[in-house]
Design a protein around this nucleic acid. Structure first.
Lengths: 157, 157
DNA sequence: CCGTCATGGTTCGTGGCACGAACTAAAGAT
DNA sequence: ATCTTTAGTTCGTGCCACGAACCATGACGG
């Protein structure tokens, strides 16, 4: 659309940074759309996905989601207000708190996670099987070589 | 860290959705970090990058950045308050407005864009030349087959 | 024991972001 | 001259992220 009007090349060799940024935009948009369909925000979706594996303390969650303590307090507050998550006081440590999914939260998390995976995988529908596994392997190498927060690890079922 | 403790497999075949989501997290983090180093937010960075090519009206910008009109008004307000962008009234249409980079905005945009590209490309330092071009080609196919907003198209210089 | 310090979280204030609904003003159409 | 569409803004709401200050509880050292 815009390119042609401007007479600039659009299909020349895209550099890897551009490809990554644009892919990121795409994935973010799909992820946000999926979140919305389940009545949650993307951040709340992240929280639920992390908690699918097991409950966690605020400290751990902050590390995994890369959030400051005060940011996390708010996120948990809002997610708890929606009834998806619960603060339990840790048995051994009186000051610590453990965040766990409520029953409803577990349902929403499972459905949302599955749906988000499906929709994001669908972005690669144009790739044949070999290309898709190749892409997966390359991205996997990128994320493992750069320490990525332990979100959406796909180990959650 | 967490995986081993749980006895769950972590290095098995990651599915493509997980790989995409985690890559997206990584790219977002790097992009945000780069933005911060230039005193702008990621959204303001997007705006600057889009305007690098040429000035645009609010309508166009909304389409490219996938923002509602009212969201864009605020973004332009804040970016203009930082002196990076300017509202010019369109000569032909009395109600339309054209957003253009200020001199300082053009400088910041160029530096930020180059730096962000560099840092994001650096995420693939672990890949050899062939792998990198392969990854680029695959991602390029994904973004072209799913209409992605015209952000960060890499055509801007 | 009793101070002292570290740790785990919350509160508060600030600023940015995104949206829809309601609105204004200029173009354009009849 | 009106009616309608188009381009943007305003306003109110809610979410998100942060740092600084704060409050408990737990851990240590004497």
């Amino acid at each position: 659309m815009y390119y042609e009007e401007m007479g600039k090349q659009t299909d020349g060799p895209m550099d890897v940074a551009t490809a990554l940024v644009r892919t990121s935009f795409l994935v973010d948009a799909v992820y946000a759309e999926a979140s919305g369909d389940y009545g949650i925000t993307p951040q709340q979706g992240n929280l639920l996905c992390v908690l699918m594996a097991q409950p966690h303390g605020m400290g751990e969650l902050g590390g995994m989601l890369r959030l400051a303590k005060s940011s996390l307090t708010g996120l948990v507050d809002r997610t708890a207000r929606r009834g998806l998550v619960r603060r339990e006081t840790a048995p051994d440590d009186g000051r610590a708190v453990v965040i766990a999914l409520t029953e409803e939260g577990a349902e929403v998390a499972a459905e949302f996670y599955a749906d988000a995976c499906r929709r994001i995988a669908a972005l690669t529908d144009g790739l044949d099987e070999e290309a898709r596994t190749g892409l997966t392997a390359l991205l996997e190498q990128v994320v493992t070589e750069n320490h990525v927060p332990e979100v959406f690890t796909g180990t959650a079922e």
